[in-house]
Design a protein around this nucleic acid. Structure first.
Lengths: 262, 262
DNA sequence: CGAATAGTGTCTTTCAGACAGTATGAC
DNA sequence: GTCATACTGTCTGAAAGACACTATTCG
């Protein structure tokens, strides 16, 4: 009752209280072979040994200053990359997701350039593999990692519609055609070239570097991401593909419906 | 090595490992007296006894099935409300935010109708108070709760620009003028009446109930939220207030700039 | 030259902002 | 009638979509 804050803290023993397990899990995305891929590991230890899972693990209370630092550490351990795009997606906690007991995981997602990964891969002994999204979606993953992967994907797809986030999947310099291609892969939808370029350039999301790159026939201008627009969002989202007008029948009634709106 | 998953789990002792403290904190918002307010409590116990803080606390591993359930329980304990708008904002964890040690908190934000709160207030013994946002922002709050409050506010303000979220601050039925007023309070910006109504009605975010309500002179149509559009987002955000054109001087050059764009 | 890729001109469409107008009811 | 509040008509403007067009390089 008359204890001071100092006394309270001196007598406080964290271990005296039940606490849930706390982990950090990572959905690490990259583009390779024209597909969006996610890095999965094959669990080397119990529980769920041998199952495919998102990389992740415990916070190192001694060395990780923050939760974000834990995520950076995990990412670096798996990919050798130290400055990726990294964002918290959500935190899931319940009594049943881990057989060891009540457990909470903070899910982060990272976007990396696959070339940067490939070069620095070396010091891994845990088996890990890049898996195409459509395949990963149909796999059985450990714990509730299928749900986590889904949440990360939804976030990526949503943000692709109104930000320049996907630049983080490309190297420093890129052509607008390459960038558009990445958008199309993520959204699984083709985009209008002119509208895409106008949007990127007029909002100054990307900046011309002056250099150019020859891939096919005509050389293409190289662009880089405008760091000023790190938290930039476009004033409108990219639209969903239009419902192709049903030409078989009912076309007239559809037109009537549209006119009713006016 | 040759241990089975069953054996592993039988020998696993959660307490054998260091774990951070894990809490859930709540930013509970309501509108009263034409102001956005947040519910703060005066901490009854150490640490930070006597300081103002966001309501929150530990997960009850025995009774809370999920993290969201913990948030619901906390909210109910403080407000008596069981079906509010409740959403996870973010999770903050680091070694320094709590003097007891490495600690993680999952922040949720809730929107409630103040009338619903008021009626059911009774069984509280911990001192709690509604505080206007501008005042709360200038107060000293326990731990990093000032940062948490800020994160929740940013989320609320952002979502107000592109969703119908603020309906959760009103009773079941409301007039469009009332709803617009709530938007204006949150955004601290006046909105165009016609544009606001068109947006809400044409997107079917709200539905006419047929009933009407007399407040001032002419009776106003009552609307209710369209549950179908729970996860609905408007195709565009409400715009920021235009920069009022500087009439003192430089007006001509401003006009030139506009024309240059064409 | 043709083929292929890079990049532009310009019209339409959608939806928010502006603002003046009309409608309804209390007094 | 006036006044206040509810509600509408309709023009402007910003930014996305559609699509035909030109430009540059390779062979």
């Amino acid at each position: 009752m008359s204890m001071s804050e100092k006394e309270f803290l001196a007598n406080y023993r964290v271990r005296d209280f039940d606490a849930p397990l706390m982990t950090v899990d990572m959905a690490i995305f990259a583009i390779m072979e024209n597909r969006l891929q996610v890095l999965l590991i094959k669990r080397a230890d119990y529980p769920q040994k041998g199952e495919w899972a998102l990389p992740g693990g415990f916070i190192n209370l001694a060395t990780d200053p923050t939760l974000l630092a834990t995520a950076h550490r995990k990412l670096f351990e798996k990919t050798g990359i130290s400055s990726p795009y990294l964002e918290q997606v959500s935190t899931v906690g319940n009594a049943t997701r881990d057989p060891r007991g009540w457990s909470v995981t903070a899910l982060y997602f990272a976007l990396i350039n696959f070339d940067a990964f490939h070069q620095q891969e070396s010091q891994r002994f845990e088996h890990c593999e890049w898996v195409e999204i459509c395949k990963a979606k149909s796999m059985h993953l450990a714990f509730d990692h299928q749900l986590l992967l889904d949440a990360a994907l939804v976030r990526l797809i949503n943000k692709t519609r109104y930000t320049a986030l996907p630049v983080s999947l490309l190297p420093e310099q890129f052509t607008l055609t390459e960038l558009q291609h990445i958008y199309e892969i993520i959204l699984d939808q083709s985009l209008e070239k002119k509208a895409f370029r106008r949007r990127m350039i007029e909002a100054a999301a990307v900046i011309e570097t002056g250099q150019s790159k020859v891939v096919g026939k005509r050389p293409a201008q190289l662009y880089r991401f405008n760091q000023d627009s790190f938290n930039f969002t476009f004033p409108r989202s990219l639209e969903l593909p239009r419902i192709p007008p049903c030409k078989d029948d009912h076309q007239e009634s559809a037109i009537h419906l549209n006119q009713d709106k006016k």
